[in-house]
Design a protein around this nucleic acid. Structure first.
Lengths: 256, 256
DNA sequence: TACACTTCGCGCGACTATCGCGCACCCGGA
DNA sequence: TCCGGGTGCGCGATAGTCGCGCGAAGTGTA
């Protein structure tokens, strides 16, 4: 969350903002849009929305049957620009792989984007059950060990602001749904130097995460492992996982 | 490759095109850009490029230290819009998982984007070696079994046009580097109903793929499995893989 | 130290790209 | 047959976007 420099009005390209809003108007509930519905969802006039959609169509980012518009896989190129340009996700891959093999779980490298944790690298499949995010997936930071580990390295005031006036949607019976409960998770992570979260997002899944910092101490992301809980105690899971996570943490510190 | 409707000049939003070009100007070789270099890479004037970068910064898609600009993980949201809105990648996930477990390789669901094959869903990690694409990855269609399987379902003329005037960059000693060799791969796939490719992109890796079609016959994507070659014969690999791929093929046909 | 070169931020006046209204039209459902 | 939703498109107005050109700041070299 870098400080936003004040934006001069004359440095604002309205067309770019609108175009991006059009792209993001497509989602699960609205996989295909007409010009009119796209306009309604974005607050743009229908005529303008149509122009943007047709521009995107010409660029190959959307397709259309003349009536409906839908996104093409080409939009993935945009995300790909990030993967290509962000060196950490690449540097981290061998460590993820090693940890995944050693621990038998899915491992992730994740970063914070505002209030969400975004998983930008992954290795290992969870044989037992289908816990697992795909790359680029994002969830509210309080729901994943990766998020808690990173929040523990943000200033207290920021975390408080983050917690204030936030709804915590329960995903399982055990999801922490109060600000205090989430704060406790964060405080625990700060004290211990790692985050341990159980059954917040999915039942019988345990996450363990450590924050990754640069040499100067600034936090850049986190490495986490997702394990089926089974009969293993949390102490045991932490004991066997932490050495690998710590090793990656220190190694990546000098990778910068 | 839908027919492009002729685009009326007045339906063209230059600002959106420029903004997207700015985002795509970031890549492996240019992870961080100044306004000037971004301008050079996109053919936009420096002043304009700076305005677009600052707009993107304000939107949260890039960050800046005042001099350099770099992408943030937020751009992944754009790709995510596609994953959210494309129902097939989601419907396909359980099949991929099942195949991955049964065959012990990495499985992919991929689609065509112009001349590239784009991997949009994945399951399974290859324990043996690090063969594997991440989501959104793209390679020239002739290099992956998934691509060959899909090209086999495109009209011959289109494939010829596709092959004409194309450079085939060798990735291994065995990469097919002539149009005829690639055409033979495609023809084989068309005759057999599945694609088998060996060591085109990486040594000692074998790919087997089938195209996925809707009930009306239109090809929408492909499912493939990537296996280490080891000592297994190609016949044996096909024999044990194909039943799983076929099953997914037929199941997904009705998923539409 | 001074010079040459490159970059940046920014103000400005000019222009054209973009805007949204309004119309005619088409289609499917009641 | 009517109604409500959608589309394509012409048009005139406006303000959003453009790029020049300035001064300042940084970097490498003589």
């Amino acid at each position: 969350m870098t400080e936003k420099r004040e934006l001069d009005k004359r440095d604002w390209i309205a067309g770019l903002d609108k175009g991006i809003r059009i792209i993001e108007a497509f989602n699960d509930a609205h996989p295909r849009l007409t010009a009119s519905t796209a306009a309604r969802r974005t607050g743009i006039t229908r005529t303008a929305a149509r122009r943007y959609l047709r521009t995107l169509e010409h660029l190959g980012y959307v397709e259309s049957d003349g009536q409906m518009f839908w996104l093409t896989p080409r939009v993935l190129r945009l995300g790909w620009s990030y993967f290509d340009s962000a060196k950490l996700p690449r540097a981290v891959q061998p460590y993820l792989q090693r940890i995944a093999v050693a621990l038998g779980g899915a491992t992730y490298y994740a970063v914070l984007d505002e209030t969400d944790v975004v998983f930008v690298a992954r290795d290992g499949s969870s044989q037992i059950q289908n816990v697992g995010f795909v790359l680029g997936a994002r969830v509210s930071a309080n729901l994943a060990a990766a998020g808690i580990a990173m929040l523990a390295y943000r200033p207290k005031e920021e975390v408080d602001a983050w917690l204030a006036g936030r709804k915590f949607v329960p995903y399982t019976q055990h999801t922490a749904t109060t600000a205090d409960a989430v704060r406790e998770n964060i405080d625990n992570a700060r004290v211990r130097g790692y985050a341990l979260l159980e059954q917040q997002l999915a039942p019988s899944v345990r996450g363990i995460a450590v924050a990754i910092r640069k040499r100067d101490g600034t936090m850049v992301g986190s490495i986490s492992v997702s394990l089926p809980m089974g009969t293993e105690t949390s102490e045991r899971a932490v004991a066997r996982s932490l050495p690998y996570l710590r090793e990656a943490e220190y190694a990546l510190m000098s990778a910068f």
